[in-house]
Write a protein that binds this DNA or RNA. Structure first.
Lengths: 173, 173
DNA sequence: TCTGAATAGTACACAATTCAACTATATCTA
DNA sequence: TAGATATAGTTGAATTGTGTACTATTCAGA
């Protein structure tokens, strides 16, 4: 889809070489932390690029899609833009804009909260649910292919380590 | 620094709850992959926000800083914008703009490559090196605090798993 | 060696995101 | 209960990043 993809390694060897090259240039202590940061960044960039690619002509991108996931997965309960921005890691400002888009696409409905007049309750529309029914399997398949290089145990280990880091980071903030 | 920080968990419990909440809303198969994606995204967002915060009033952000790291770590060899964009994961377009900024700040020098007349050789200026001498320890300290929740063995494991994923992803692309 | 394909760098328009500020409402506390 | 403080949502300006297209140069193969 992109004419100038960010990550364009052609082969296993090329990718390894690139990583090694980056590491060579980061001497001294703290090297491993820096390496981990680079890996995490590249991973996220790839995941985002890949998802955006798959979403293609749906009019969605990875951010609006992740907002829809949250609504899709909790159809019974009301969700507010602020919660959404917390869950997705986007700013509230950006979430407002994303909700505008999603509303214009007819994928979500905004209604004033009956209990807190500052709030807006968000919900998937029928059309929104249908779109997600179609898109979710596609996206899962795409990321699944790559994640399947890890065994079940490795995924569990990775999840544990990443959670540990996220919690440490957030505790620090 | 930011008035509206993306990640604003107040406590360990709150963060755990938030993660659990996200996971609750992602039923079905592929759940773990989605969980991993969310963790990676949040981690990268936190790292970027944290670094940007530390960079503060230096006039740099996490992207221009990572470009400078590459130049700082290879002072002897010439580096081109394209290499830089590969290493940092930014588009070439963006790297051009970043180099413009860095040049205006007097942190880097652009000289035409003597061997390939399409290329531009980039190098840190003395001022650029001085700035990095000052900033690098700060940034390393900041990220170190959080990464230190992991033992040496855990970091090695994490690095191994992340590398495996990056390579798998890039191979697929 | 000539020609077509690939690469490096860039400019410009456009898209996405953030920052700062504001209104309205709710909550907390003296 | 009054006043201060915090939260929810939004807007407009500014920043940051991308898509497309272009020139110049190099490279690879007929």
């Amino acid at each position: 889809m992109n004419s100038d993809p960010i990550i364009a390694a052609r082969s296993f060897e090329e990718a390894e070489e690139r990583i090694a090259r980056v590491f060579q240039r980061l001497p001294g202590d703290g090297q491993q932390n820096t390496a981990l940061i680079h890996l995490i960044k590249h991973l996220w960039k790839w995941l985002a690029e890949s998802a955006n690619d798959e979403l293609g002509d749906s009019g969605l991108n990875v951010v609006s899609f992740s907002a829809l996931i949250m609504l899709y997965s909790a159809p019974e309960s009301a969700v507010n833009p602020s919660e959404l921005s917390q869950c997705t890691g986007e700013t509230r400002t950006n979430m407002t804009r994303i909700c505008n888009e999603l509303e214009q696409l007819g994928l979500i409905c905004r209604t004033p909260s009956p209990t807190d007049r500052r709030r807006v309750d968000l919900a998937l529309s029928d059309k929104g649910a249908a779109v997600m029914d179609e898109l979710l399997p596609k996206l899962r398949a795409r990321s699944g292919v790559a994640f399947d290089v890890l065994s079940r145990e490795e995924k569990d280990t990775l999840e544990g380590l990443l959670k540990k880091l996220v919690l440490a980071f957030e505790q620090q903030a």
